[in-house]
Design a protein around this nucleic acid. Structure first.
Lengths: 246, 246
DNA sequence: CGACTTGTTGACGCCTTTCAACGTTGGTGG
DNA sequence: CCACCAACGTTGAAAGGCGTCAACAAGTCG
């Protein structure tokens, strides 16, 4: 379980992008990322400082307690953000989707580790570079600030869920929030993709894998959802909302 | 449980402080508050925009979902930050101590309600005024940004605690973290004051009041702690650390 | 003192975990 | 093509930790 500094990027595919066809101007996630507040001129300045970085399923972008040498925009794919207890118990702090920014906390060391749940494409900025950019561009700092504040309210939602909700409420609430997140990045459907495994869901919701499986089965039997390979079809979202009791 | 806008300040003692003996220059919590990054000149500008506001035990500073019309520095006392589920279940998101800043999330509406656990003194800034100040002073924005980022890692700690720790670990961990927080604001002692009731601790840790009471009794019988009126004396902090398993 | 709030303790019950077995899927190689 | 295997998911039975219910103690305020 040891994670070296930079280990993450050893097997990853790095690409210093020049003013080519995958520059910032063509970035798929620009409108939903922190970069949305930057002008075209500013984006050109950014291009030289960023690298594209691709991870395969299971690879680690950065590890817990590892020096935070960079921050990332997620362009494509899904990552799992986890924190470990010394005895091996694991808490998934969240899942990062396209448009999300990794490294908001920007401490000396990463407080979580980030692992790819499938193929992932990211845009990497060195820590020093990024600090200099935010220093020079107050509106970017404000955008980042707004994002952390939003993350904080999400964390509070999760604290309420972990502390005061039953297993069934947790699972129902999780499916709905995932649907909403996918909707916000353009992937709008009654069928919600589940890029993470049952164990990841369990560690996110403070449950065991068996309980998650049982609750999904129960919702399926009640025709609230339909379990499909790789995801879930929400048949009765209204009932889920009632269960989630938000 | 209805909370009117401004209801908070109806019964509170408001004091527009002028360049008197309790101006920003003499502020007890300045070195540990967000204001620590401001120069004396800037503090003078601030004084006209701030009000002192005193609450008695049980009074509400602001309520959940109430429009966020102001932000606050806590000068003295302790507040409870809570979020409510429609059915009445409650999660305490945190406790605010002197030097803490309330309203960091700075959304349209407050995501939590803040209630005084004893007599509380705060320094109030109108939302518009405060937005203008941060707009004009980038270093204040950076200081606020650093604070939210820190809050976010604290929230992650709490998520790990809520999701993956046993009742005993939760209580032990809570006592230690409270000791550390008091230490950081100058109140350094083996006897940890508990300004909140058992129910508040329970709602913070995702437990019931009975379980909190039982765990405290168990730690007391094991001579790890000594229950004293209004607080706890930590007799064997090392054992607590081991229990907390951080 | 008496009513009320807050905290403690015990007995019991239930929801979730634990332990275990089985089914399913996907990749590999005979 | 299919046997084989490992990883993942599902389901059942039993156990246990924490919640629920209830009684009691302690402190507070009129």
């Amino acid at each position: 379980m040891l994670v070296d500094t930079g280990a993450c990027e050893r097997n990853a595919h790095v690409c210093h992008h020049r003013r080519s066809d995958n520059g910032c101007g063509d970035c798929k996630v620009r409108p939903i990322s922190v970069c949305s507040v930057l002008s075209l001129v500013e984006l050109e300045q950014l291009e030289g400082l960023s690298q594209h970085l691709t991870l395969d399923k299971g690879q680690t972008l950065f590890g817990q307690d590892e020096p935070a040498s960079a921050v990332f925009n997620v362009i494509e794919g899904c990552l799992r953000l986890t924190r470990l207890l010394p005895d091996g118990r694991r808490q998934v702090m969240g899942f990062a989707l396209p448009g999300d920014f990794l490294g908001l906390a920007l401490q000396e060391r990463h407080s979580v580790s980030a692992e790819a749940l499938g193929q992932v494409k990211t845009c990497r900025f060195g820590r020093e570079d990024f600090a200099a950019i935010t220093e020079a561009k107050p509106h970017l700092l404000k955008s980042l600030h707004a994002r952390v504040r939003y993350e904080l309210t999400l964390a509070q939602d999760q604290m309420l869920l972990l502390g005061r909700r039953t297993a069934e409420e947790k699972v129902a609430s999780f499916l709905l929030s995932l649907r909403d997140r996918f909707a916000r990045i353009g992937h709008n459907s009654v069928t919600v993709e589940l890029p993470m495994g049952r164990q990841d869901m369990a560690d996110y919701l403070g449950l065991t894998i068996e309980t998650v499986s049982r609750m999904l089965s129960r919702l399926d039997r009640a025709h609230s959802i339909l379990l499909v390979p790789g995801g879930v079809r929400l048949l009765d979202a209204a009932r889920l909302e009632r269960l989630a009791a938000s």
